[in-house]
């Protein structure tokens, strides 16, 4: 697969595709969160990503890092729930990792994803298997690193990351939550997909679609 260069245009397309896919899945995320949380994840994420799209109508980031920073700031100000600082920190750490680079090579991309995951872990203090976003992000980071090391291009790295995130989200179904509001339910949280892992998979898939040339 020959993808787009991972430049500012890609980053902007990723954010816009994320907004579209979050809007499409708003009710699904609300349902998932209603089962084991407080039911606001879909609405909060939709509001946050819609705000990113609105901001992108006013300014055009010149680098992927600038786009990530815009996303970080907006999500942390508009989402409201825990997803705001968690996704915000993910994008902020990714922005720091890529610096001023105009284009990300596969290694830089894998590094940015790892930095994002580390940010989520640091902020939320969750570990793999706690039934959180981390369960989608961690396998995605591992898959991205392996793909980059094997010589895959950016689009293929993102495809591998998205696939692993999707599998990771599905794998949260039987888990008992140990972090976040779902942890209050204890054993009763088993049998439901974690909403944060589900939205993480959607967003990483959007990154792969943008890299494959899909426009928002």
């Amino acid at each position: 697969m020959v993808g787009q260069p991972l430049d500012a245009a890609w980053a902007i397309a990723w954010l816009k595709l994320s907004a579209a896919v979050v809007a499409e899945n708003r009710l699904r995320l609300i349902e998932l969160d209603r089962s084991i949380g407080d039911g606001d994840h879909g609405e909060n994420m939709d509001r946050g990503f819609a705000a990113i799209v609105a901001k992108l109508a006013e300014e055009t980031p010149a680098t992927p890092g600038a786009a990530f920073k815009l996303a970080a700031m907006t999500l942390m100000s508009k989402v409201g729930g825990a997803a705001g600082p968690l996704y915000g920190t993910a994008f902020l750490r990714a922005a720091t990792a890529v610096g001023e680079s105009a284009t990300l090579d596969p290694a830089a991309l894998a590094g940015a994803l790892a930095a994002a995951r580390d940010g989520v872990v640091a902020r939320g203090k969750a570990e793999l298997g706690d039934k959180t976003m981390v369960d989608a992000w961690s396998p995605a980071v591992d898959a991205a690193a392996s793909a980059a090391a094997a010589g895959a291009d950016g689009a293929a790295v993102l495809d591998a990351a998205a696939e692993a995130a999707e599998a990771g989200a599905v794998a949260t179904d039987p888990l008992t939550a140990r972090k976040g509001r779902a942890s209050y339910l204890g054993e009763r949280s088993a049998g439901h997909r974690d909403p944060g892992a589900a939205s993480s998979a959607l967003i990483l898939r959007a990154a792969a679609r943008a890299a494959a040339g899909e426009a928002a």
């Binding site: 700031m73 942390m76 409201g80 729930g81 825990a82 705001g84 600082p85 968690l86 920190t89 902020l92």
Partner: peptide
């Protein structure tokens, strides 16, 4: 609570 602490931490990081 919870996410307010995270937002405060994120603000300091920002």
């Amino acid at each position: 609570l919870g996410s307010a602490v995270m937002t405060a931490e994120a603000a300091l990081e920002f």
